[in-house]
């Protein structure tokens, strides 16, 4: 009897908490979503509607939609196929490189005990405290000295220049180190007792357990390539070696007069689609919790 009342109260409480949680998520969800919604809306509006409408409407009637006009105009504004192919190639190389070097370095920082570890780690973190633009010119000179930048630059040289500086990342080493640190020490000690080597332990236990983080790093790194702009423009000598954001910016850098915002947003959405698909595909791997029982043995 008593227990029944209790469970009833728990249920009510659960429903109330549920409503609160969902309201909170919906509220912030809307706040977060406004600009993306704006982007879609702008991409299907007529340019005159965008320019003259005060205030801008948040809803658009079916009749007013200029989907085909804007998207077809946006698509031909730059050779996006070529740019996307380049971007996918660069993203794949630099992401694989980053993930591998990051896993190794994070393992050393999280699990191994070596002389000067903490100082070195601090030194790594402190490199993030210098504005990135201070690195650009020196790296450009380095790339030129390595022979990857010249008037007769080949595609391979361009790829080297585009990827080599981004084959590792302090930001992600720090991130993965923290994830590795979340994995209880007992597991490592137990593995040691069983005579498992560090190498095996890293690949059989730590990497699978940290897979949500590794997937996250993969997505974030790929996105970094997607939005890269200054470096690709600086180190490529031909238009056809450049990346999507270069194409986007250059197709819409209006020298006089106004920008075609609708086509620009349409183009932005076109080049974003592969990223969104990648995210939707990998999303479930981020949310797949790893329970310890699953990886025993």
């Amino acid at each position: 009897m008593n227990k029944k009342i209790n469970s009833g109260r728990v249920k009510v409480q659960q429903i109330v908490v549920g409503i609160l949680v969902y309201s909170f998520l919906v509220l912030f969800g809307i706040f977060v979503l406004i600009p993306f919604y704006w982007m879609i809306l702008t991409s299907i509006k007529d340019i005159n509607q965008i320019r003259t409408e005060i205030p801008p409407s948040l809803i658009i009637s079916f009749k007013q939609i200029k989907f085909w006009e804007n998207y077809s105009a946006a698509w031909v504004a730059a050779p996006y196929w070529k740019y996307m192919l380049n971007t996918v190639t660069v993203a794949a190389i630099s992401t694989i490189g980053t993930v591998v070097t990051t896993i190794f370095a994070s393992f050393a920082f999280a699990r191994l005990n070596f002389k000067g570890r903490d100082i070195l780690f601090l030194a790594l973190i402190s490199t993030m405290m210098i504005p990135g633009e201070m690195f650009v010119i020196t790296n450009y000179i380095t790339v030129a000295n390595l022979g990857w930048y010249n008037d007769s630059q080949t595609y391979v040289q361009a790829l080297l220049a585009l990827t080599m500086p981004f084959m590792t990342s302090v930001f992600y080493i720090f991130f993965l180190r923290q994830t590795f640190k979340q994995i209880p020490d007992e597991l490592y000690l137990a593995a040691k007792v069983d005579g498992t080597s560090d190498w095996k332990y890293l690949w059989r236990i730590m990497v699978p357990m940290a897979s949500p983080t590794i997937i996250t790093i993969t997505i974030l790194n790929a996105m970094g390539t997607w939005s890269a702009y200054i470096w690709p423009k600086l180190v490529t000598t031909k238009d056809e070696y450049r990346l999507v954001t270069n194409g986007l910016r250059e197709a819409y850098s209006e020298l006089a007069g106004q920008v075609m915002y609708n086509q620009q947003m349409a183009a932005a959405l076109i080049v974003t689609t592969p990223l969104l698909i990648t995210f939707l595909f990998l999303r479930k791997y981020i949310m797949r919790g790893v329970s310890r029982s699953g990886i025993k043995g």
């Binding site: 977060v32 932005a268 974003t272 995210f279």
Partner: peptide
Amino acid sequence: TVFFLPYVTNAIAIGMA
């Protein structure tokens, strides 16, 4: 997905919004 979308939102759209 919603909370991921800001990541793929064009900077100009963000400014306009």
